[in-house]
């Protein structure tokens, strides 16, 4: 393993801002794994740390294939992490809206450019991503339909679902999208939470990446990793969005992964003063609960569940 500084920015009063990478193996740039791009992506950071730990061991055991190299970048936004902020400390910009970046531009454009220059030539790009709404997904791989997407490769993660996303205007500046434009196979892995740690999902995400690396011939079998699932492919725009109706305090009755039938009571929204029921949220379809929003206070029409229609 080689620890290297990919990008560095000097600060007026803080320690230098550093993007640090961990390089395993030699030769072809086979796979790059990026963790947190935002300051609250602690689960993603932790997942990377466990991956670094595992790859270190695999490398010591000679199980990284000859002529293959893997780069892991656990965090691209240490400055925000250390002050518990989601976006860039000074101007609140999102590094994941700055790709491919610009080395003579604004600070976060430079960070994106510095990172992307280092990682754009990897054949496979994997990002541990988070959703903008706090909540939990059933673990899945997400790929963007840019015309370069490869569903069969996404199956190699062995995660239960593959979600195909139709890019929207703002997606064009994300890491995943630009990786694909630069002809890397790009995958976003969603497993579990964001600003809290869920150990089961960390294990699942690490194993998913190991499965992928093994099936792509980048590492040799580690033997004990579960093969995973045969993935179902879902189009993101076919997920059934379930909204709150009224605003208030929410009481939730189902977990991610639950099977529900049409008419099942998923949640109640309560009056926050007297506990009376403001709205009952019923499942609009038979299916599997794919996403559960997690905030106790909910706004009107907030998206609180996404369901895969059966």
């Amino acid at each position: 393993m080689k620890r290297k500084i990919i990008f560095e920015l000097k600060s007026l009063y803080r320690d230098s801002f550093r993007v640090t990478g961990f390089l395993f193996g030699h030769g072809e740039k086979s796979a790059c794994i990026v963790g947190a791009l935002r300051g609250n992506e602690v689960q993603q950071l932790y997942t990377c740390s466990q991956l670094v730990k595992t790859l270190k061991r695999l490398e010591a055991e000679g199980r990284i294939c000859d002529g293959k190299s893997i780069l892991v970048v656990p965090s691209v936004n240490t400055y925000s992490m250390n002050i518990k902020k989601r976006f860039w400390p000074t101007d609140n910009t999102d590094i994941n809206r700055m790709f491919p970046g610009y080395d003579l531009g604004e600070t976060t454009q430079r960070i994106a450019a510095g990172l992307f220059e280092e990682i754009k030539d990897y054949k496979n790009g994997i990002q541990f991503a988070s959703f903008y709404i706090p909540g939990v997904f059933v673990p899945h791989v997400r790929i963007m339909k840019t015309g370069y997407e490869n569903v069969d490769m996404a199956r190699e993660f062995g995660l239960p679902y593959i979600v195909l996303r139709q890019p929207r205007p703002y997606d064009t500046t994300t890491l995943n999208y630009n990786w694909q434009v630069w002809e890397s196979h790009a995958f976003s892995v969603y497993a579990g939470t964001t600003d809290t740690i869920n150990h089961d999902d960390v294990t699942l995400a690490v194993n998913a990446v190991l499965n992928f690396l093994r099936k792509e011939g980048i590492i040799r079998s580690s033997g004990f990793v579960h093969e995973g699932y045969i993935a179902s492919v879902v189009a993101e725009n076919e997920l059934v969005n379930v909204q709150t109706g009224a605003a208030g305090i929410i009481d939730r009755f189902v977990q991610p992964g639950a099977n529900v039938v049409r008419g099942d009571l998923l949640s109640r929204v309560l009056d926050p003063y007297d506990g009376s029921v403001r709205s009952e949220i019923l499942s609009p379809t038979d299916g599997v609960v794919f996403f559960v929003q997690e905030e106790p206070l909910v706004y009107a029409n907030a998206s609180v569940y996404k369901i895969i229609r059966e």
Partner: peptide, 8 residues
Amino acid sequence: KIDLPVDE
């Protein structure tokens, strides 16, 4: 006009 969660 949209109702917020708590009395607003």
